[in-house]
Computed example of a mutant assay.
Amino acid sequence: MTDDDFPPPIFLAPGASPEAQALLDRWNEQWPGMQPWRWAPRQERPDDWIRFHTLANGRQEFRHARDARTARRRVVRVVESVEQVTGLPVAILIVPDDSWHGGVRKRVRSVIPDLEPWASTAPDLDGCSDSEAAEFLADWEPPTHTFRSGPVSDDEIRSLVELVHRSDIDFLLFPDDLSWAISMYDGGVDVVMRNQDEAYRLVTWLWPWLPHRGWPSTPPWTRHPTQRELHRGVGMRYVRRRLRYRD
């Protein structure tokens, strides 16, 4: 097989609108070759990655209603802070459609009813022989990522936070020029900002929510652990476990 037989990393989805094509053109300028999954921006630009915890002690699951309120409040605060620091409001929401099923799809559509098709992504066939790749592509159905342009309200963000924790949906937020990215997982928010001065301002505003030094998979921006964290060993057990496996 030649390179022409393989789809590009990201390409326009069937039925996509001219607005979707314009978004893909901007995407290929700002994030060439990157696929629109929530982990991709931090992997693409690890030096520009900032992580904020949305639950105390780096926890990932809601234990009670107060945890849910805390996560919603922190995510909204992070998004608002990025908008204030950069002067660029959220204008693009991207959500993959391929993993939705049943009730999850209905819940997403109840929160963001006006999503439209945007782009599809190619499979990772590294290490496959030509025959294996050809066999896979013969039956392959490209995953579709949907988008919506325009403002994303605080209430919509709060609802998306719930969906991330309850159903592990994947979504990305961008300004219109795609110059920064915000994504979320259960227990945290990832921000990727190329302007280091703006990143520094954001970190000084929200530093208590940064992971402390020694936390696993630590991004470039961290804080000193508190005495309570040192006393309780919060996050340290993971570090000890990693060191033990490494030895």
Rank of each mutant, 00 (worst) to 15 (best):
D130R: 08
A91L: 02
E135F: 13
S159H: 15
P216E: 06
M184R: 04
P225W: 11
P123V: 00
L12Q: 08
H231W: 15
I94K: 13
H212T: 13
G87P: 05
L206M: 13
V78C: 04
Y238Q: 12
Q60I: 11
A40V: 15
R66D: 14
A22Y: 06
I92R: 04
T226C: 05
A134S: 12
I92S: 01
H64S: 11
I50S: 01
G188R: 06
Q60H: 08
T86Y: 06
D114S: 08
L210H: 05
L88C: 07
E116F: 06
L163D: 05
H145L: 02
R244F: 14
L115W: 11
A134M: 14
A22L: 02
W140N: 00
M34T: 07
P14V: 12
Y185H: 03
D124N: 07
A22H: 07
A71L: 04
I112A: 03
M1T: 06
A56N: 15
W100Q: 06
S131L: 08
R213G: 05
R148P: 02
D190W: 08
M193P: 00
D98W: 15
T226Y: 08
Q35A: 08
W180A: 01
D176F: 09
H231F: 12
T218C: 15
T144N: 05
Q43W: 14
S167N: 13
L12Y: 04
V104T: 05
H212I: 14
S149W: 10
L115D: 01
S159A: 15
R241F: 02
S183I: 04
A13R: 05
D197C: 07
Q35F: 05
V189E: 00
E162D: 11
V164E: 00
V85I: 06
R105D: 14
A40C: 10
L93T: 01
E198F: 12
R201E: 14
P117F: 07
I92P: 01
V79I: 04
F52Q: 00
V203E: 00
L55I: 03
Q21R: 12
A138E: 14
W39A: 06
L160S: 01
A13K: 14
M1K: 12
S179N: 04
P123K: 00
D97Y: 13
P36S: 11
G187S: 04
L173N: 00
Q43A: 14
P41M: 10
E83D: 15
T146H: 15
V108D: 01
D168C: 09
